[in-house]
Every structure is written in C-alpha cells, then in structure tokens.
Design a protein around this nucleic acid. Structure first.
Lengths: 236, 236
DNA sequence: ATAAAAACTTTCCATTTGGAAAGTATGAGG
DNA sequence: CCTCATACTTTCCAAATGGAAAGTTTTTAT
C-alpha cells in the first residue's frame, strides 16, 4: 500500500510507524498465545509501552487489529517464499520438494505464531476463519498442481489431496507449535538447531523415504524416554 | 474414588450426577473452542441450563473444572484403548501398527475436542500444561518401546523419536482439529465416513508405504482445487 | 413427619475488558 | 514562531466475568 517512491507524500512520522510495527508484533504473539477471545488489547498495549487506546487510534478496534496481524503474517510468509529466495527451487522434482520442505520447516521453526494463530481460528466457524481462509486458499492453490504432479511421478504417495496437504503441513508445523509441551515432556528445545535439523531429517525420511540419519546428532532424551540406542554399553 | 460396593454410603443423587456429567461435557466443548482464558463458566452453565454458581458448587472454580475435564478426557482415551478393545492388537508388528493407526484416527475423528484442548494449553508454559503433560507422559511412555522396536525392524523410518511421535500424532489428529478450516476451504466434511476413510488410507500409505487406494471413494474437491484426475473426459 | 444433608438459585461484588470522548503533546510546513 | 494535522494520553462507561455469601428447594434417613 505504501509507495516507497514518494518523498513528497505526507509521510508518517517515524514514531507512528514504530508504534504500529511494535503493536502489530506484540499483538501477533498475544493472539498466538491466547487466541482472539483470550487476548486483550490492554496487555498488548502494555507490552509495547503505550495505552490501549492507541491501538484503537491506529487500528480501529480489536477485530481490525487482528486482521492487520493476519495480513502482516501472510505477507511475511509470501516474502519468505518469494522467488528471490526460492527462485532456484523447482518444486516439481524430488530435489525441489526436499528443498521446499527444508525451507518450510525453517519458516515454521522461526514463526510458530503463524500456525498458532491459524489453529486458534480454526477451532470455530467464525468471520475470522473466513477471512483467514482466503489467505490460505492462495497458498494452497499454488501448491496443488505441484503436489499432484509429484504424486503422479511417484515421488510421494498418491493419496487424497486434502490428506496429503494436511499431513505435510502438520508434520512440518506441529512440533514448533507444541514447543512448550515438548520442552516439558521431553526436555528438548525444539527451536534449537539440533532439534530443527533432526526433525527436518525425519520429515524427509517419512515423506521421501530418504534416510540421511546421523543419530549421534539427535538431541538426547530423558531417562524415562530412553530407547537404549547405545547398545554395547551395559551399565551393570 | 466412589466405591460401588457401598449401599450404606451417602450416595450421590441422580440429578447431581447428571448435572456434573452435563457440565463436564459442555465445559469440554467450550474449552476446546475458546481455550481456558477465552471460555467463561456462565456460557457453559447456560448450555447445560443451570446457573454458573452451580459449577462452583460442583467443581470449586474454573481451574478445578478444567482439571476435571482433562481427567475425564484422558480417562476416555484410556477406555478407548483399553485391552478390552485392543487386546488382539500386537503393536509390535506391521499389522498391529496398521490397526492401531485405524483405531487412533477413529478416536481423533470422534473426539476432536481432546486434541483441541491439548493444543490450546500447549501455547504457553502454564500450570495447566504441566498438569496435562503428566497425562501425556503416561500415553507416550507406553508407546516408546513399541515405536522403537518398529523402527529397528524397519517397519517405519528410523528417525528421531520425538519427531516420529509428533509426526504420527499430527497426521492422525490435525485434519480433525481443523475441520472448520477444511470445510471452509475445500468444502469437505472431515468427519464424514468417506473423509475419515480416505484419510486413514493416506496415513497408512505415508507411514507404512501401503497403497490400497480407491480414489473413486475420495470426497470430491471444488473446482479451484481440481487436479483433473478424471483424464480422458475432455469437457471441451 | 421431620430434621439434616445435598443440590441448586438469587443476589451481590470487585475486576477486567473493549470502546468512546475529550484533552494534550509533538513535529512538520509556512 | 505559529499553526495545524498527526500522534498519543487521560478519563470515563457499560458490559462481561469469576467468585462469594446467603438463601431456597429437593432428597434422604430416621
């Protein structure tokens, strides 16, 4: 919306732009954690260090703020997958899919809030879900022909497209959505490089049947989850 | 807690038991939809047709109600996977895993609230997550040795255990967590028998590499998602 | 029948929350 | 330096919310 060419335009003050950006960022995290109903704009404002009425000033109301967050998020997703960065990826090949999976997993690890917000809003059929689905539709529409092609080529299993979509999405996304639970349960920081790498390997193994495994680099698990992988090391 | 042997004990009234059960049920759905913070006990009470203070009477406070819901939910899960129903499943074999996947997918399709609540609570490191994780630990602890064995046998990919767990869980659970989004996006009712079947097939194909596909029974997708599967039917 | 316990409601309260209105500070252009 | 739009704050309000206290009804036991 903002043309970057104009030096003659009214040009918002720096402060205002920073406020908008900070509010958007705080709102994103808060909506991701509590959902729309659970989030409150006063908390968001406090995180940024402004009064809650400034949010109203910049965004109108809670709903409009939410929409701005979603637009901003999907813009970020598009940017991360723009041709600038993925120009060399030809998704119609096995190598392309592998690269795409790596890229997508990285995005999920870096932006767990994105999927968290999407999941929150999928829990009920609301106006917000409708709004969000139009963003999702764009992403999916671009991938459908590619995925179909990969199925026909036998690179990936030839299954119901909806299932395939959500299986691929889920395995890339969920471990990073559930970082808190995994930390508590397995004592593993999913966002650590080792965990991201181990998971990337796992996804590629499951989807493409490739095993590049180097178990020594997998994050170690607590005693109750030990699988006695280090055989030949009797502790008695 | 209630000994069923005693005819001398105070013995709760029928009405009270029904109230408790109805409240628990309504609370479950509400927590699943809005999360703990987003849910409010007055709405729950109204759904049941009682006053919100009755919830306080039976459960103490919102937090205790939530815990009761979780306990109840996990009890239901245990029941669904009790030896009564799965006694014949030997999870250490390929056939066993296939049966287990079918059973688990059915559970997820029938009880999407369960995973919805778990996901809500995984969004932040709270006392509630701690509480829930102890339930989850029990489930996982029982499955770890089995999954490890299947990996060693080569029935499933030999990957990092945490990844494997969450990949398996996610692909079984998420399409039913996201029913609203899938309905809106693809116009498909995930809880329909056809969709559950198609998804079950897909999971087995991905995890076990088995393709029993009968695409004609897959739910059809809207035009924008058409993959021109019916070739030889030129419409021009 | 009657007392006592259990089940449930009415009423009230303090806090939180989204939003509205009115006022103040800030900085860019004349 | 002055003014005026932009950026932001203070103050207020009504509704929603979790919880507490005090009541009323229903059931059980004697």
């Amino acid at each position: 919306m903002n043309s970057s060419t104009g030096h003659m335009e009214p040009q918002r003050q720096e402060r205002a732009l920073r406020s908008r950006r900070d509010i958007l960022s705080a709102a994103r995290m808060t909506f991701a954690q509590f959902g729309f109903d659970g989030a409150n704009i006063r908390d968001i404002a406090e995180q940024v260090g402004v009064t809650h009425t400034l949010i109203r000033y910049h965004f109108g109301n809670k709903m409009e703020l939410w929409k701005a967050v979603v637009d901003d998020m999907f813009a970020g997703l598009s940017a991360a997958f723009s041709n600038d960065r993925t120009g060399e990826i030809d998704l119609r090949t096995r190598d392309g899919l592998r690269s795409w999976l790596r890229l997508y997993i990285r995005y999920c690890a870096e932006h767990p809030e994105h999927v968290r917000i999407m999941i929150h809003e999928s829990m009920a059929a609301t106006e917000r879900l409708e709004y969000m689905v139009e963003h999702i539709r764009l992403s999916h529409a671009g991938l459908i022909p590619v995925f179909s092609r990969l199925m026909k080529q036998g690179v990936v299993p030839d299954v119901w497209l909806v299932s395939f979509f959500y299986m691929i999405s889920s395995i890339c996304q969920m471990p990073f959505v559930l970082t808190n639970a995994i930390d508590q349960l397995y004592g593993v920081q999913m966002t650590s490089q080792a965990a991201v790498d181990a998971h990337t390997e796992a996804v590629i193994a499951l989807v493409l049947g490739e095993r590049s495994h180097d178990p020594s680099r997998w994050p170690t698990l607590p005693g109750w989850a030990e699988t006695a992988r280090t055989k030949g090391h009797p502790k008695t």
